[in-house]
């Protein structure tokens, strides 16, 4: 089990694309340190030969017919858009 003091809130928040203030960083560092120290007890469990369970009910290859059907119109898809024009979402500039 990794040392829980490895948690660097500022670094992880950048990975998550989430700005945190200095106050938040200090508070989360302490609170999540507690949670991770608690979670470290998972290291006690013998998990040799145990398959990881992504779901409680194993299900594989759930198929349905690939048929066109009525769904959103462009207007409906755009109704919640913070910014839109010409039936398109406006995004923040990504290329110079």
């Amino acid at each position: 089990m990794a040392e829980t003091t490895d948690l660097d809130v500022a670094y992880v928040a950048r990975l998550a694309r989430l700005q945190v203030s200095d106050d938040e960083r200090r508070t989360f560092q302490a609170q999540l340190g507690d949670v991770l120290r608690y979670a470290a007890k998972l290291a006690e469990v013998n998990v040799q030969d145990v398959e990881a369970a992504a779901h409680a009910v194993p299900m594989f290859n759930v198929f349905r017919e690939d048929r066109p059907r009525d769904w959103f119109t462009a207007d409906e898809a755009l109704q919640n858009a913070p910014r839109s024009a010409n039936d398109l979402f406006i995004v923040t500039k990504v290329v110079e």
Partner: peptide, 15 residues
Amino acid sequence: YYDAFYLRAQKVREL
């Protein structure tokens, strides 16, 4: 940290 936390937690979930 994936193996130590996430993968291990999935295995304990199975138990």
